[in-house]
């Protein structure tokens, strides 16, 4: 697993119970890493009183047309989310 700026990624398609910070609308979708948001404590542990090591959080850009097949705006329109690395897999 190696993610860096410019890496094309896919967000894992999974639906766990509990608190996490990956919205439904990007799960299973493909985007590109545009920057490092920072190394942050894992929200999934913090939510239950834990801590654990800091995790890389990447800024991932998605084309609107990949998120919504019926997207009506400019095909170049995008959405950027800050996603924990453990929700991302590189795609080829």
């Amino acid at each position: 697993m190696s993610v860096s700026v410019g890496t094309p990624v896919r967000v894992l398609q999974m639906d766990p119970p509990g608190h996490h910070r990956t919205p439904r609308f990007v799960r299973g979708k493909e985007g590109v890493v545009i920057g490092l948001a920072g190394r942050m404590p894992d929200a999934e542990r913090l939510a239950y009183g834990g801590r654990g090591p800091d995790q890389p959080v990447w800024r991932v850009r998605f084309r609107q047309t990949t998120l919504w097949p019926d997207y009506a705006g400019d095909p170049r329109d995008t959405v950027v989310l800050d996603l924990y690395e453990h929700w991302l897999e590189p795609r080829r």
Binding site: L81, D82, L83
Partner: peptide, 8 residues
């Protein structure tokens, strides 16, 4: 470009 503040 929409920025969704999903992390800290």
């Amino acid at each position: 470009e929409v920025h969704d503040s999903t992390a800290e």
